[in-house]
Simulated assay, not measured.
Amino acid sequence: MATVTPQMVKQLRDRTDQPMGLCKQALDQSAGDLDAAIVWLQKQNSKMGVKREGNETAEGRVGTYFCNTDKVAAIVEMRCESAPSAKSDQFVGLAGDVAKHVATASPADVAAALSQPFGAGTLQDRINDVVGVIREKMILQKFNRLTGAVYGSYVHHDGTVGVLLACTGAAANDELLRDVSAHIAALNPPYATVAAVPADVVAKEKELVQADMAADPKNAGKPANILEKVAEGKLKTRLAEVVLTEQPMANSAKYPNTTVGAALQKAGLTVQQYIRYKVGAVTY
């Protein structure tokens, strides 16, 4: 049986990020064999996940990944128990790894993703490794995977809100697509384009515009064609509040007097769809 030295313990800690005491125990249990100690740690981390299974995972972060060369992208929501853990380097890295895995491995659902190969183990093993470091329950809550478009993304600094944006176009504009994704994260528009607004919503907005105009004495006696043009302008203004492409870019200093649609059009891009995640919220 090999003597476990401090250098061996440090080497195992550097490779696994596990506590020193646990690394020493793993090496003792594995007769000083480094690879066997790693397997032992993985088993312990898996047991820890089972022990914490009943714990609530109310915190977490969003992770995104896209590759415009391969035209694949993914957005994931990872959950954990506490806000400090959600902001840790280990959890941030985990969210990124999971998003990349989902985009490239194309799992059918969460259960399939967790059982897919990742490194020397599975994706669940990758999660368990971080569980072993942070000592909290962690789960892959949900994901969306997209293919065949030009992509951009944005994740808020605290990780709680993230957006994956898909556009059609000849080439990506990373800076613009990130800015539009940040706009979506901040303003949360329910519709991408005017054409995407349901007919009943448009009809209701028209009714409201007409009611407002009828109640305004300034419109009395105006020709019908003038009133129609005014109504069209008011309707466009109302729709701009809920339609992404009609909204002024949130970063007005960088994009003065420019709507989202105009900024994308100038770059040869057209919005196709976007997915906005907020930790703990329903996705639409």
Rank of each mutant, 00 (worst) to 15 (best):
A74Q: 08
A74S: 11
I75C: 10
I75G: 07
I75S: 08
V76F: 13
E77P: 09
M78A: 13
C80S: 10
S82G: 10
S82E: 11
S82N: 13
A83N: 05
P84T: 07
P84K: 06
A86K: 07
K87E: 15
S88V: 04
S88P: 01
S88R: 01
D89F: 09
D89G: 15
D89N: 14
Q90S: 11
Q90M: 07
Q90Y: 06
F91Y: 05
F91W: 04
F91T: 02
D97C: 00
V98M: 02
V98H: 04
A99Q: 01
A99E: 02
A99M: 04
H101G: 01
V102S: 02
A103P: 02
A103V: 00
A105R: 05
A105T: 06
S106T: 07
P107R: 01
P107E: 01
D109Y: 05
V110R: 04
A111Q: 08
A111F: 01
A111S: 10
A112Q: 01
A113P: 03
A113G: 00
L114K: 03
L114D: 02
S115C: 00
Q116V: 04
P117E: 04
F118D: 15
F118S: 15
F118V: 06
F118P: 06
G119R: 09
G119I: 05
A120E: 15
A120S: 14
G121E: 08
G121Y: 13
L123T: 09
Q124P: 06
D125N: 10
R126A: 14
R126F: 09
I127P: 10
I127C: 08
N128Q: 10
D129Y: 06
D129W: 05
V131P: 06
G132L: 12
V133A: 13
R135E: 10
E136W: 13
E136S: 14
K137M: 12
M138L: 15
I139P: 08
L140S: 11
L140A: 12
L140K: 13
L140W: 11
L140C: 12
Q141G: 11
Q141I: 08
Q141K: 14
N144F: 13
R145C: 09
R145V: 09
R145N: 10
R145K: 11
L146H: 07
T147M: 09
T147C: 11
G148W: 09
G148C: 11
A149N: 08
Y151D: 05
G152V: 05
S153W: 01
V155N: 04
V155I: 07
H156F: 03
H156K: 01
H156L: 03
D158G: 03
G159L: 06
G159D: 05
T160I: 05
T160W: 01
G162Q: 03
V163H: 02
L164W: 09
L164C: 08
L164Y: 06
L165A: 06
L165N: 02
A166E: 14
A166Y: 12
C167I: 09
